[in-house]
Design a binder for these strands. Structure first.
Lengths: 228, 228
DNA sequence: CCAAAAGTGTTCACGGTACACCCATGC
DNA sequence: GCATGGGTGTACCGTGAACACTTTTGG
């Protein structure tokens, strides 16, 4: 768009806030190659193609940047301050995504020069208004995990109750009572108890569970409301 | 944009879902003059100007259509299916708004040929994907009134507890217990009890109350969470 | 046998829910 | 005086919160 911009034109991009969970809540950032904001860290994203929906654009960008398909992806908010992009009028539809870090090699991304996972508590300066977008995504995530079972998207398919609890503690930034947490989560009957336990741990191995999407959908129809 | 469209161009509009409360939940619609969808009912909206933010565009459109300023207005969702507009690629940022019907002459709008309030339970066929947008707004409204005190935006500044309760009953589409409702809402200490009662009613006049925005903000800082 | 995390119940306080009658006013 | 909504309190139940010790396993 560099040379061809006409003053009346509006460009629309998607930007993705991709969260992953480690011992920390992490966000995927890329390092920009060209101007503006060359070498700055930014959210992965790009222009929407003429023949794709916004959702499809977000999915495409995400898959191009991370190699991921079919992750949890949800539209967040649309940012459109007049001067948010020095190149001209650019409106950005922001998405937030949750991925299972356990499924991929975090290393590959972390070691690369142009893409990396950053702890949300220790972020670099970001390009454009991406800090604002990230903040909005974080707020949405914190709000949403408490009343929708989306946190599972951050965990491996099979997980222990302690991992599940820790995930909530990290995201909500407060500690939870172990017994109450277990009572509540098991009482919902959303988890399938597997005949399997952790491997290679230097202490008693914990039982593994799996989130049962079908049960959740069935319960939801009956008026059940998930809540942590 | 009729003659000047280039295939690579994207246009961005705002559409507003404006709710008002009568004995019913109402939505403001306009009747389209030109193609496409001439004579169809549609949500008020229009193109974003190059020199205004999206929020400003929504506010401007709303004020142009209804004469209203400084009403409750919040971004809802951005709709961008490739074929949602027969004229080309048009992305729409939808807003939802809450207005006090009591403050204006509903009549003027209702009698006009090109603009009118429709009960959400009895809507005409809408242009574009506006039915989908309206449905999304309704869902958001129903969800949001229960945990944020936005319902007051639909009522006159001074209202009775019965009016307040009725508002929730209409939006949530379920009946509430009068004593429990009063206990709860008064217990929050968000309402200022006025030294004033209803006028011109053929029965005992009810006390009037006013929502105290300041108290709410103060409480919110202390971790208070509004909930119906 | 020691370290580390897994796993497990009970008690108490509070808030949600259910429920029915008298009161004030205008006509 | 009658019709119409305004206004009020109590009892029960279920859920959330606080809280500590024993068990299992690997090293």
């Amino acid at each position: 768009m560099a040379g061809t911009k006409r003053s009346s034109e509006t460009f629309v991009t998607v930007d993705c806030v991709v969260f992953g969970l480690d011992s920390d809540l992490k966000v995927l950032l890329i390092q920009r190659g060209g101007e503006p904001f060359a070498h700055s860290w930014a959210l992965p994203g790009g222009f929407i193609h003429a023949d794709e929906s916004i959702d499809a654009a977000a999915q495409r960008e995400l898959s191009e940047e991370t190699g991921l398909k079919s992750v949890f992806l949800e539209q967040l908010y649309t940012f459109g301050e007049v001067d948010r992009d020095p190149r001209g009028r650019v409106i950005s539809v922001a998405y937030f995504a949750l991925v299972k870090l356990s499924d991929h090699k975090v290393r590959a991304a972390t070691d690369a020069a142009d893409v990396g996972w950053f702890s949300v508590t220790d972020l670099p300066t970001l390009a454009f208004d991406h800090e604002q977008i990230l903040y909005a995504a974080l707020t949405r995530l914190k709000g949403k995990v408490t009343y929708q079972p989306i946190g599972f998207e951050l965990l491996p398919k099979k997980f222990t109750l302690s991992q599940l609890q820790e995930m909530y503690e990290i995201i909500l930034d407060r500690s939870l009572d172990k017994r109450n947490f277990r009572k509540k989560i098991l009482g919902m009957e959303l988890l399938e108890e597997l005949e399997e336990v952790q491997q290679d741990v230097a202490h008693r191995a914990a039982r593994l569970y799996r989130f049962d999407e079908r049960k959740y959908k069935r319960l939801t129809k009956g008026g059940f409301v998930f809540e942590i």
